[in-house]
């Protein structure tokens, strides 16, 4: 079984703070991490490798330092890794990114001597963009089925059966190879990298791909290939603080609260 996992290095958005005076994002000192949902995706691939024997290849599109998450993925047990890094793909919106990655997937398959990958796994969304679009966009570009919000994956032969999260519960969907699946947290608990894996991964040469290597149509990448663009960025208006009740005896606070809620006809 040949599996490709798309991974992304993202800032740890839980650590991002807003400057209270300038109302701008303080990016300095925010650590970069392996996008959590991509870890779930990789863990799913590694479990298939453990249970059924599979080769797991990683692909990431990002600046040169994104190679760190590729090393972490290799340390967790992935077999191969590729980094697509090129200034020209910068500024791409989700359509352009999906196109770039799809072209990269084709190139990586070629480099691995494959016609196609059987399963492509992605995280549901990246925690910086939060769009949850790139997985489906890659699937659409490659013309393969997509199954999103995977909470459980079973593979038998060339068939995948996935339990997808849904507002009502779960939808069970089937598809045949090749298929793209996006992972949610519920899917699994990602394993930790091993020490030996980390040390081996440190020493590995990770091949980089440029826009030219993956044969993109330049009009479809970067800003020129992006139908959407950002008109403005701002920090969300903060709700202002209301009435805070801090009494030794919470019964007093509760009584005051109930009074106010009744006054305002909220209860």
């Amino acid at each position: 079984m040949e599996i490709l996992v798309c991974v992304k290095q993202v800032p740890d958005t839980a650590e991002v703070k807003i400057d209270p005076v300038k109302h701008t994002v303080i990016r300095a000192g925010v650590p970069n991490i392996f996008n959590p949902f991509d870890q779930n995706a990789l863990e799913a691939a590694l479990q298939l490798k453990d249970e059924q024997g599979a080769k797991v290849t990683l692909l990431s599109m990002g600046p040169p330092q994104a190679v760190e998450v590729l090393r972490e993925g290799l340390a967790m047990g992935a077999d191969e890794a590729y980094l697509l890094t090129d200034r020209k793909v910068g500024g791409s919106d989700t359509l352009a990114t999906g196109y770039c990655l799809a072209q990269a997937v084709r190139k990586v398959a070629e480099l691995q001597g494959l016609d196609h990958f059987d399963i492509i796994l992605c995280g549901k969304q990246a925690i910086d963009g939060d769009t949850a679009q790139v997985g489906p966009q890659i699937a659409a570009e490659l013309g393969i089925p997509q199954i999103t919000y995977a909470a459980h994956i079973a593979v038998e032969g060339e068939k995948v059966t996935v339990k997808q999260q849904n507002e009502e519960g779960y939808i069970v969907t089937e598809a045949s190879f090749p298929v793209l699946i996006t992972a949610v947290k519920e899917l699994n608990e990602p394993r930790f990298p091993t020490i030996r894996g980390t040390m081996k991964a440190k020493r590995r040469e990770i091949p980089t791909l440029s826009a030219e290597d993956i044969k993109v149509d330049e009009s479809r990448i970067g800003l020129s290939g992006s139908p959407t663009n950002v008109r403005k960025i701002f920090t969300p208006p903060q709700r202002t603080q209301g009435l805070i009740l801090n009494n030794e005896d919470v019964a007093v606070s509760v009584a005051t609260l109930m009074e106010k809620l009744a006054e305002q006809k909220i209860i």
Binding site: P11, T13, V25, D128, P227, N229, R231, F234, T235, P236
Partner: peptide
Amino acid sequence: RPALGGNIMAEIVCREN
């Protein structure tokens, strides 16, 4: 829409498509 984990808001437009 919100981005960066909800820390910022972005205004997006799609002018030509």
